[in-house]
Amino acid sequence: MAAPEIKAWIIIADWNNSIAKHSDFRGRHERVRWWLSTQRKLSCDPPESFSEYDSKKDCCREKLSEALIESNVQDKVDRDKARFSKELHTPLLLREIDPNEVQKKMPVISRTL
């Protein structure tokens, strides 16, 4: 179900080694996580529960990467700071993840990889 968004799901699954540590998000990652959990009903433990399956599109109804981008500009204080960029941040954040942590938090997807 997450195939097109798998990189965003992996980044979210190991939040503490990815978003929380990156200099563009450090100091505000808690607000980003809070917004994702309250406005998008996203749990980082496990992120697999995000959205619902759309059988017509054969994917999730909502894109996790779009929610992550949107979450970065909710606070007036943060609007002038770097937004999450799939092109810029994804490769950097994926290098920092702990595969064991991802496997613990994403058991369904881990079994299929």
Rank of each mutant, 00 (worst) to 15 (best):
R33C: 12
I97C: 13
L88P: 00
Q39S: 13
E5M: 11
D98V: 07
K76E: 14
K57P: 00
N72H: 05
E66Y: 01
L36F: 12
R79Q: 14
R28H: 08
R111S: 13
R31G: 05
D75M: 05
S51F: 04
F84Y: 15
H29E: 15
W15V: 08
G27H: 09
K21W: 02
W35R: 12
K41W: 08
L64H: 06
E62T: 02
V32E: 02
E87A: 13
V102R: 14
Q74F: 11
E101F: 01
E5K: 07
R61E: 02
K57D: 00
L36A: 07
N72T: 15
K76C: 05
L88W: 13
D58M: 11
P91Q: 10
S55H: 11
L36Y: 12
F50Y: 15
E101Y: 00
F50Q: 02
S43T: 09
R40I: 01
S65N: 06
A82K: 14
Q74R: 15
R95H: 10
L36Q: 06
S51W: 02
D45H: 12
I19P: 07
Q74I: 03
K104Y: 07
L36S: 06
K76V: 07
D98T: 06
I19Y: 08
K57G: 00
V73Q: 08
K86Y: 11
S23K: 11
Q74P: 00
E62D: 06
K104W: 04
K21A: 12
A82H: 14
S85R: 13
D58G: 02
M1S: 13
P47M: 10
K57W: 01
N17S: 10
C60F: 03
E87H: 08
R33P: 00
S65G: 04
S110Q: 09
V102G: 09
R31C: 03
F25D: 14
L92M: 15
L93M: 15
A3C: 02
S43C: 05
K81D: 03
W35S: 05
A20C: 10
P107F: 08
D24P: 05
G27D: 02
I10N: 11
F25P: 14
S55N: 07
L42W: 03
N100F: 10
E96T: 07
K57E: 01
P46C: 12
F50I: 07
E96D: 09
L42G: 03
A8K: 09
I69N: 05
H89M: 11
E52R: 13
T90N: 12
L92A: 15
M1W: 04
P99L: 13
S18D: 06
I12V: 15
I10R: 15
E5C: 07
L42R: 04
I97W: 10
L36R: 02
R28W: 12
E96Q: 15
N17I: 09
E62L: 15
R40K: 14
V102H: 12
D54W: 01
Y53T: 04
C60R: 14
H22I: 01
P47T: 00
K86T: 06
D54P: 04
R31F: 06
R26N: 08
R111I: 01
W9D: 01
R31M: 07
W15Y: 14
K7T: 09
I12D: 00
S18H: 12
L36G: 06
S43D: 14
L94N: 09
P46A: 05
K41V: 00
W15F: 15
S49E: 02
R83S: 13
M1D: 03
